[in-house]
C-alpha cells in the first residue's frame, strides 16, 4: 500500500462503519494532501460528523483502513495517542472544561501530553489566545464567555498541541448569527497559515472562500467532490443539486 506516500496526511481506504446494525458509513475512500482544506457538507444524518470523528478514533470503524501521517488507526493505544496529539478537533458544543480557566484549558495538554514546562506552555497558550483575539479572557472561566469566544478558546486549545491536522465538527452550528462570523474569521486566518483542515459545516460562504475541495455526503456515502467553483456551479449528481437548491435558495 502506498500509505507512506508523503503527499497524503490522511488516507482512507474502503472504510465502513456501523452503529449496531445501522450502516452509517459506506465504502469511504478519501485522500487529503498536506495543507489541503476540505469542507464536508450534506443533510443531517448523512454521516459527515461520524466520518471526521473516525479520523481521530472518537468513533471506531469496523472495516477498511485509515492512515493518519502514515500511521494506521488501530486498537494500538501507543499509535492512537501519537495520532491524537497530532490531530486537533473543534466540536459543535465547544466542550471546554468548565472547571478550568481559559488558560488552563489551553495548557493542560501541552503540559501533560507534550511534557512542556508550565511556563513555556502558558507562553504558548497566550500566543494562540492572541491569535484568536481573546488574550484578555485568559483568567476567566468558560462559563463567563460568549459562545463565539468559547469556540475561539476551543480552537486555541487545539492549536496549542501544534497539530498537523485540524478537524472541525460543525463549529458554528451552536452559535448566534452575530458570533458565527468571528469564529469563521478565526478559521479563515488559520487556513491562510497552511493548516490541513477538514471542516464539517453548512457555511457555504466559508466553503467558497477557503476550501480547496468540497465533499458532499448523503446516506453514508461520498456522493460528489469537486473544487468549490465547480461544485456550486456545475453539480453533477441529482442529490447534490437538490441539496444545493435547498440550502442556497432560502
Amino acid at each position: 500500500m502506498n500509505s507512506k506516500n508523503k503527499n497524503y496526511v490522511i488516507k482512507i481506504n474502503e472504510m465502513h462503519k456501523w452503529f449496531g446494525t445501522f450502516h452509517v458509513l459506506k465504502n469511504i475512500n478519501l485522500e487529503v494532501g498536506q495543507g489541503e482544506r476540505i469542507v464536508i457538507c450534506g443533510p443531517s444524518g448523512s454521516g459527515k460528523s461520524t466520518l471526521i470523528r473516525c479520523i481521530n478514533r472518537l468513533e471506531v470503524h469496523q472495516q477498511g483502513h485509515i492512515f493518519v501521517n502514515g500511521i494506521e488507526l488501530s486498537g494500538d493505544l501507543k499509535n492512537l495517542e501519537a495520532i491524537r496529539s497530532d490531530v486537533g478537533m473543534v466540536f459543535q458544543s465547544f466542550n471546554l472544561f468548565p472547571h478550568l480557566s481559559v488558560l488552563e484549558n489551553c495548557t493542560l495538554a501541552p503540559i501533560w501530553v507534550r511534557k512542556m514546562p508550565k511556563k513555556d506552555a502558558e507562553e504558548l497558550a497566550m500566543e494562540y489566545l492572541e491569535r484568536v483575539k481573546i488574550p484578555e479572557q485568559a483568567q476567566k472561566f468558560p462559563g463567563q464567555l460568549s459562545g463565539g469566544q468559547q469556540q475561539r478558546v476551543a480552537i486555541a486549545r487545539a492549536l496549542c498541541m501544534k497539530p498537523k491536522i485540524m478537524l472541525f465538527d460543525e463549529p458554528t452550528s451552536a452559535l448566534d448569527p452575530e458570533m458565527i462570523k468571528e469564529v469563521l474569521d478565526t478559521m479563515i486566518e488559520l487556513a491562510e497559515t497552511g493548516m490541513t483542515m477538514l471542516v464539517v459545516t453548512h457555511e457555504m460562504g466559508f466553503a467558497k472562500k477557503v476550501a480547496d475541495r468540497v465533499i458532499f455526503m448523503d446516506e453514508g456515502e461520498i456522493i460528489e467532490q469537486n473544487t468549490p467553483k465547480l461544485f456550486f456551479t456545475k453539480p453533477t449528481n441529482d442529490r447534490t443539486k437538490l441539496f444545493l437548491s435547498q440550502i442556497l435558495n432560502h
Binding site: S85, G88, F91, L96, L108, A109, A158
Partner: peptide
Amino acid sequence: EAADAIGL
C-alpha cells in the same frame, strides 16, 4: 471526547 481529542 475533548479529553481524548487532545491526547490525554
